[in-house]
């Protein structure tokens, strides 16, 4: 290469006093020219260089932020919330994949028994409940007590995680719902899903979260079975009046949950000890 950045040009470029066109030339040249890069690098304050390096060394051993965490940060989720979400087991890929598998299996089984989407509708609302059951508690969070003492601990932490579980569960349920069932069945499981999820959180203020999930799952299955057996039409458990009931249940549970939110701040509550 015959052209090199001369001293004057370099000084102007470093000081930001060079016009755009000349800067373009300098920058394009620097990429391919090691001697010119060395020239310009010598101009940077050695103290700053060392200080920057110290920062790099300091963070070299830090864990690499997960891909999910970076993706969340990119769409505008604050870094600390992104970290929280990325460490929630039920929004990790293996869990989501297993949930999709379960739902697809439910749809296939349902169809092969000539039941239409029925089995899918029964299983889909339980996905977020299962997600809640594996997302909370001491078993996944070794710093549980420490977390309680922080401003994001307790109730707020629970809300952030529960929301992420709910959103991701709805998203994975949409996969089989869109691919495998008729359009009208795509949404009828959503309000029941919301209701049983909030109910699980509410019950978990009294008993452990896994027990709460078990109780709510049982209630849901028994409730659906009894409604279907007692009603004259199929899908009564997902009809308009049932949707109203589930909507009411979701709102009522949410209200009670707000009242009982103190129980998420206490150390030693069952909610924290199992999961």
């Amino acid at each position: 290469m015959s052209w090199h950045v001369d001293h004057e040009l370099l000084v102007h470029y470093q000081g930001g006093r060079l016009g755009d066109t000349a800067s373009f030339s300098v920058e394009a040249h620097l990429v391919g020219c090691a001697p010119c890069r060395r020239l310009i690098s010598d101009a940077i304050d050695p103290a700053r260089r060392d200080q920057l390096w110290a920062g790099v060394i300091d963070r070299m051993d830090w864990p690499d932020p997960r891909r999910a965490e970076r993706a969340l940060a990119r769409v505008g989720v604050p870094a600390h919330t992104a970290r929280l979400l990325a460490t929630t087991p039920s929004i990790r890929m293996p869990w989501l994949l297993s949930m999709v598998t379960v739902l697809v299996a439910a749809v296939v089984a349902s169809h092969s028994f000539g039941e239409g989407p029925f089995l899918f509708l029964v299983v889909a609302p339980l996905v977020p409940v299962a997600g809640i059951a594996v997302s909370f508690g001491r078993s996944i969070d070794p710093l549980y007590e420490v977390g309680l003492a922080t401003p994001t601990g307790g109730f707020r932490l629970m809300l952030i995680r529960a929301t992420s579980v709910l959103v991701s569960s709805l998203a994975v349920s949409m996969v089989p719902a869109v691919l495998l069932t008729e359009a009208r069945w795509m949404v009828v499981w959503m309000i029941p899903a919301l209701a049983v999820t909030v109910l699980t959180l509410l019950v978990s203020t009294v008993i452990s979260v896994s027990a709460a999930a078990g109780v709510v799952c049982t209630l849901w299955l028994v409730g659906v079975a009894m409604t279907e057996l007692g009603a004259s039409t199929r899908y009564a458990a997902f009809g308009a009046s049932a949707q109203m009931t589930f909507g009411g249940l979701a709102l009522g549970s949410a209200a009670l949950l707000m009242i009982r939110r103190q129980s998420f701040e206490r150390v030693g509550h069952d909610w924290k000890e199992t999961g």
């Binding site: 470029y13 470093q14 620097l30 090691a34 890069r37 060395r38 310009i40 690098s41 010598d42 101009a43 940077i44 700053r48 260089r49 920057l52 390096w53 790099v56």
Partner: peptide, 10 residues
């Protein structure tokens, strides 16, 4: 780092 930090900063 030593080779590249300078021009990168600028």
């Amino acid at each position: 780092y030593d080779r590249h930090v300078g021009w990168l900063v600028i």
